[in-house]
Design a protein around this nucleic acid. Structure first.
Lengths: 366, 366
DNA sequence: GAGCCTCTGGAAAGCACTTGCCACAGTCGG
DNA sequence: CCGACTGTGGCAAGTGCTTTCCAGAGGCTC
């Protein structure tokens, strides 16, 4: 017998302990509800869990009454154990404070909420191990779905371990997907990084830019590598060459962009017409560096990024970039994993990027 | 008897179904582990759950061996049911894509991760009801803690309902805290909104500003009201009055700021020296509006915000604001709820704001 | 060598649910 | 008026774990 008798409906105010000492947590179980309603546990369960079996109206009413009176809330954990079906959707992002990730997360959550899925998030700040640990945690939670967003590094060993962990997750019945690179053997929302960068390069060339520097991400980060490669490839038909020394590596963050830009400025030789940062946060960092240097964009130098994060609305000058529908990519991933059954082979959904030319790359009237 | 016999260690690759048709999810239970190790269920449990009771070394080794071979992961849901202790930390924010919230969330998650807490997040976009629903979901999940971040509106009815729901949560043994207003009867991280705005107002006056407009948030949003009131109060000793018509209401978002700024610009009479937006995202929107109008900040008009969100690093001109240690506030909330026991009465931890004067309010040399 | 204590394995009773199965009460056709 | 059928309540057996309790083994003292 649990606490049902002692404290029913009304006393929402007094909420303190009943026993001596510790204010023991009040546990109201379905049994209490059944007792109060004068029905069996099974009947109460049928009413509460809204399953197949119907219950006569008057009994159902009595049960609902009891639920309300007791303030009962079904124990989802217990339900999950009994049914083997949880309603947890795991999400791992690299850094929730980065607008790229938070936009995707927002899209994702907006799909999850109406489906009454519980979104469990981990922000692992690029820690390979943290990611793996979270996947394992999700497996332990028997989460229904898992979405990994963000680029993975091409590190063989780490990737294999992560892959194995995800395999264990799907094998135990979970549904996994990924937003970013198609490296994990699961359904993937795949932004067209190379194609986007290629198109951007061509567009910049059309604008009249001839010499470039690229603020590339860390070596091995696939998204960054793809964008770099696409960009270089886009310039080839025009016989514009991007030499190794014009490619500066840096962290995939604002400060990484700032520092990479410093490196570019410190180089000997003529300043490039235009700088391409492989993502917007780096571009924004680069812009800050240029401003610190007293250089004006685009008059003195052009600057372009990639992603079209929300922040760009408010940096000045408006930055040329390749727009990725971030919010929608989040939605896609969530829908993929929540509404569509797993196919035999992992599916890859490409997402195109759209070149958006803005003031930051306008050529001064020649 | 479960699948233990059928599929052990090696076949991680073939992962498909064993029965006919559906690739049935592989369920490995502790019983399988115990069987394989040749020990009882209880012994296996004692080894994997790392409890008090010690197990002889050789048996423990056998169990660990079996765990590894089977790729077993303890079912956390079942464990939670058995122990009555979950490791879920619920977080509700208004909009995860807003840098204010994502900064707090980041701080919070960084504290939660090393404690192996699972962070479940809900982004409710100011929907009163959604918030309440999530709290109830957390109660159903028997979450250990709950953190509500963001200002609540002063709407009596909605607040009472939310309050009741939170009461039910804590009464059922959960620990709740809130970042924002002290309205929910739980421990609160309370930014000094009024004091910060007051100090800002004085500082602006010292800079020489004499006439002001305020881009206020929606009526009834407590944070916004506090900042407005503080600002007005800060000007009183200097006999500067902010009249009702100089206070423009708008949504607590970038676009809200944009539109509120439009309203200010459309007013008859002389333009104010300086505009105070009650938060930075509004300020940033206002800045965009001013730029669209061809007005220069601060030459034509001053502009200040509140919060010092990360985005501000990259808007130009640098915006005067009141810095709140957002990331740290998230950490504080998480620590409060995770490491400190609930006191008899809700605790309130005030967090001061620091006025940061930047270029956007510099007075042109008189 | 008897008695006592400590150490540790395992049976079994929870934990809060769902659900298969049986039984019983009506209802209807023949 | 009898039997088949349908609708529905409740018992009890799961679900995967923890934990209490008991019992046996071994070590120690006297």
């Amino acid at each position: 017998m649990s606490v049902a008798g002692r404290s029913a409906a009304g006393d929402l105010g007094s909420g303190q302990g009943d026993d001596a000492g510790r204010p023991e947590a009040q546990r109201i179980t379905l049994q209490d509800v059944a007792d109060l309603a004068g029905v069996s546990l099974s009947t109460a369960s049928r009413v509460v869990s809204e399953g197949e079996r119907r219950v006569r109206a008057d009994l159902a009413a009595r049960v609902n009454r009891a639920v309300a009176d007791l303030g009962y809330a079904a124990n989802l954990q217990a339900r999950a154990v009994a049914t083997g079906q949880s309603s947890v959707l795991g999400v791992v992002v690299h850094d929730i404070a980065d607008p790229y990730f938070s936009a995707i997360a927002a899209g994702l959550m907006d799909v999850a909420r109406p489906m009454r899925m519980l979104v469990c998030m981990s922000s692992t700040t690029e820690l390979e191990a943290g990611e793996r640990e979270f996947v394992s945690l999700m497996r332990a939670q028997r989460a229904r779905c898992l979405i990994l967003v963000g680029s993975r590094s091409a590190d063989r060993a780490g990737l294999a371990l992560l892959h194995a962990e995800i395999g264990a997750f799907t094998r135990s019945g979970g549904r996994a997907a990924c937003v970013g690179q198609d490296l994990l053997g699961v359904d993937t929302i795949l932004p067209q990084n190379a194609a986007g960068a290629e198109a951007l390069a061509r567009a910049l060339a059309v604008q009249g830019h001839r010499t470039f520097a690229v603020l590339a991400g860390p070596r091995g980060l696939v998204t960054a590598e793809d964008r770099l490669a696409g960009f270089v490839r886009g310039l080839q038909p025009l016989s514009i060459n991007v030499s190794e020394r014009q490619i500066v590596r840096g962290a995939f963050t604002r400060d990484g962009g700032y520092e990479a830009m410093s490196t570019v400025l410190a180089m000997h030789g003529p300043r490039p017409d235009c700088v391409f940062a492989v993502n917007d946060v780096m571009a924004v960092g680069a812009l800050a560096r240029l401003r610190a240097e007293g250089l004006s964009v685009p008059a003195d130098i052009g600057l372009a990024g990639f992603d079209d994060i929300a922040t760009l609305r408010d940096v000045f000058p408006p930055l040329t970039t390749v727009r990725l529908p971030l919010y929608r990519m989040g939605e896609m991933a969530a829908r993929l994993v929540l509404t569509e059954a797993a196919a035999d082979r992992p599916r890859v959904l490409p997402v195109g990027g759209e070149v958006v030319l803005r003031e930051s790359t306008e050529r001064p009237a020649a």
